[in-house]
Amino acid sequence: MELTEDTVRKLALLSRLHVEESDLPRVAGQLAHVLEHMEEISKLDLSDVPPMMHPDSGERPLRADIPHQSLDRDVALSNAPKSYEGFFAIPKVIGAA
């Protein structure tokens, strides 16, 4: 399994992780080492076996659609690193460089 530095750069972007340029070869090597082992199953012909998404434990009833008290706004915001006037606050987006 070969993983190019470009692929790792793309994966990092999709994963919202920051990988230093100088670290790309090391990360690529580690991921490739694991994927090499997993390749064993990519070669199997399992077209006659359906995929199992989930261990099925039977019915999935829907709850009655009755309004009820949910999480209080101040409580929901209490763990936020930054909040502002009842909202989660993030770095400036509009007009940002």
């Binding site: 199953i41 990519s42 199997l44 399992l46 076996v49 359906p50 995929p51 199992m52 998404m53």
Partner: peptide
């Protein structure tokens, strides 16, 4: 493929 192995 992994999901099919899971079924197996």
């Amino acid at each position: 493929k992994a999901q099919r192995i899971r079924e197996l």
